[in-house]
């Protein structure tokens, strides 16, 4: 009798243990299962903070583009704060930066916070923001374009012409006039963008904007390059206030960014990096190969200062 009771007790205990174990394991893995299923709905409205620190290079801009896309497609995100510290970069990727912010600003309130510098290509990107918040030490402006053209490639172009058989008079030729014409086109689209988005606030004429000067925070407020002095928290408050969907201070702040560990399953070599593109496409980007055979003859930059990534003998021509 006693043995039977003992057996019953043991069985009961084992069931209890099994049940307890199941609950514990279930509790551990249930969040994983939950988060594994995409959900675009969240009860609490939120303000997304997206950060760009560094040049407006292809990689950085692609990260920000993906973050902005995430913000646009997440129904809980009601406004975006773009936290920027960038001196600009190549014109082509700076334009991508602008287009991505412009797209976002058409759908959500966007407030830019200039953490350090938003000059040249950095300012290009935040121009469509509804408000630009700066600190006294924030540096904005430098609207303009430079072209990096190795002297050797211009001055020895005729020697190249003799070395190669070319199919037309302009093929493989670089001359000052064509560089200037191209530079003018890029300059006009840049200045036109700033005037398009900031024209009402700016107290400067188009020509003065095109001078390419930079302005510290207080001067930027005075001439319309920026809207108010403050910190990142103020920028978040302003973004929330600009959203009609957010009720007072009932909102969360979501920091979007690519700093999170990448758990993607794409196996790449050590030299390559993955970049999240539009529509969830993952691009594998291999760094520039110094020994590659072909390079663009000239590169156009929207940058404050001069590019320092080139190691060969290059200069910024004054003409």
């Amino acid at each position: 009798m006693v043995k039977r009771e003992q057996l019953f007790s043991a069985m009961t205990a084992s069931y209890v243990v099994a049940l307890a174990l199941a609950l514990v394991v279930g509790a551990v893995f249930a969040p994983v299962v939950w988060s594994g299923v995409p959900s675009a709905d969240d009860d609490e409205d939120s303000v997304a903070v997206i950060t760009l620190r560094g040049g407006t290079t292809d990689a950085n801009v692609n990260d920000v583009k993906q973050d902005l896309r995430d913000a646009r497609t997440d129904d809980s995100i009601r406004a975006v704060v773009l936290r920027v510290d960038s001196p600009g970069g190549p014109v082509d990727s700076s334009e991508e930066f602008y287009l991505a912010v412009n797209r976002t600003a058409a759908e959500l309130p966007v407030v830019a916070y200039v953490e350090g510098t938003a000059a040249s290509g950095g300012y290009y990107g935040i121009a469509p923001a509804d408000e630009i918040v700066v600190k006294p030490s924030s540096n904005v402006g430098s609207i303009g374009v430079i072209v990096q053209a190795p002297l050797s490639r211009i001055e020895q172009v005729e020697r190249q012409g003799e070395t190669f058989v070319r199919s037309g008079p302009d093929k493989a030729q670089i001359d000052k006039d064509s560089l200037r014409n191209d530079l003018e086109v890029l300059q006009r689209s840049f200045v036109g963008t700033v005037m398009q988005h900031r024209g009402e606030q700016l107290t400067l004429s188009r020509e003065e904007v095109a001078n390419g000067d930079t302005y510290l925070g207080s001067r930027a407020i005075a001439n319309g390059f920026a809207d108010r002095i403050g910190d990142s928290e103020l920028a978040i408050e302003r973004a929330a206030a600009l959203s009609t969907d957010i009720d007072g201070d009932r909102y969360d702040v979501t920091y979007l960014g690519s700093d999170e560990p990448d758990l993607g399953l794409v196996a790449v070599s050590d030299d390559a990096e993955t970049v999240q593109g539009e529509n969830g496409v993952t691009y594998v980007v291999y760094p520039d190969d110094e020994t590659q055979s072909f390079r663009e003859p000239v590169e156009y930059y929207a940058v404050w200062g001069i590019p320092t990534n080139e190691t060969d003998a290059t200069v910024i021509r004054d003409d």
């Binding site: 084992s14 069931y15 099994a18 199941a22 394991v25 299962v33 995409p38 959900s39 675009a40």
Partner: peptide, 28 residues
């Protein structure tokens, strides 16, 4: 038998979680 209970309960918990997640509005 306890093992069966463990498996059944665990599957029930995870299955229910999955269904809830899938059926939740905006999930897809």
């Amino acid at each position: 038998k306890p093992l069966a209970v463990f498996v059944v309960v665990l599957v029930a918990i995870l299955g229910a979680t999955f269904l809830l997640a899938v059926l939740a509005p905006g999930g897809s």
